[in-house]
Simulated assay, not measured.
Amino acid sequence: MTDDSDQPSDRLRERAEESRWKLWLLLEADRRLVVAGFVAAVFAVVLASGLLYPPAEGSIRTSDSIDTVFQGFLTATITGVTLVLTLNQLVLSQELGAVGDQRERMRGAMEFREDVADLIDAPVSPARPAQLLRALVQVSADRAREVREAAARTGDDAATEAVDDLTASLVGNAETVSAGLDDARFGEFDVISSALNFNYSWKVFAGNRIRAEYGDVLDEEGREALDRLTETLELFGPAREHFKTLYFQWELINLSRSILTWAIPALLVSVFMIAFFNDATYSYTPFGVETLVPVVATAATVATLPFLVLIAYILRIATVTKHTLSIGPFILRETDEVSEIEWEG
């Protein structure tokens, strides 16, 4: 094997090959703010297109473009509501089941909580997701300090350097993530955001590599400390994935409610524009300013609201999924900071 002290960054924003502002828009930004931005962009584009193209008003009055466009919006909105019902069924299907299935779920949850309690040396594990993740992160930092002390006793410079590289990164990362998880509430993105910034997969890989290369150099206490560290990191993985799954269900429920809420005005506007709006005779001109194009732009924007809400929520869910596809010490991103493992064969 070869040793390489370079490590991927712990923060998702720095590990991902995307700009800081793009990741902020996709992940951190409040979804209501993102929807508002999309609404403003759609309205501005439609309005600017109509105002900058002088024949636009005449084209609207002399064609059936209003009926054609809003009939499409009406059909799409009804289809979108059907999609929402499908999403709700997907979420509900995870919760429905026979009593035996529910008992199995309960048993798995209790066993997991007992494993966490044993690892953090507590009578019971924390009940809140943020507190549980914070406990695992803090305990992993304590285990890393124990490994560092054991490596210092060996007198082996290579082993001490390798352990120092791991523990320095882990302890600093744990402190930052713990601060982010402090007072974080489930249902908000803060819990998942902080958890994504704990690069546990790299640390599991580095711990396994140290165990393979320097396990003979460490004393029994040091090997046990390293095993406890790896075990804690390995437990953080399924914990994060479990809470990520629960958060996705929470977000899909919020998405469904938002789309259903905005589908009502979108349907009403589309029906009004098709059944009652007569673009040929519309002539409201306050202060001598033609308002046909702004009215059409406003109606079109309202009609697209359910889809703008859908885009805003799916962008976050898809981005989180992309960056958490693997569980365990697998690195899917292209990076030069991971040394190759050599084997005989």
Rank of each mutant, 00 (worst) to 15 (best):
T298E: 00
Y313K: 10
I314F: 14
A312H: 09
V293F: 02
L308G: 08
V320K: 00
A318R: 14
R316D: 06
V293S: 06
V296W: 09
T304S: 15
H323D: 00
T321G: 15
V293N: 11
L292M: 11
T324F: 04
L305E: 01
T301H: 11
A300L: 12
A312N: 07
I317K: 00
I317V: 13
T298V: 15
V295I: 14
F307I: 07
V320D: 04
A299H: 03
T298C: 11
T319F: 10
F307E: 05
L315S: 12
V296M: 13
R316G: 02
V302N: 05
V302S: 04
F307C: 10
T304H: 07
R316V: 02
P294A: 07
L308D: 03
T304N: 07
V296Q: 02
K322T: 08
A299K: 04
A312C: 08
A300Q: 01
I311M: 11
T324D: 08
T321K: 12
P306D: 05
A318P: 00
T324S: 15
I317N: 05
A299V: 04
K322C: 00
L325Q: 13
T298N: 01
F307V: 08
V302Q: 06
I314M: 14
A300S: 12
T304W: 09
A297E: 04
P294S: 09
Y313D: 04
V295W: 10
L310F: 14
F307P: 10
V295H: 11
L310D: 05
A303Y: 04
A303Q: 03
T304M: 15
L325H: 09
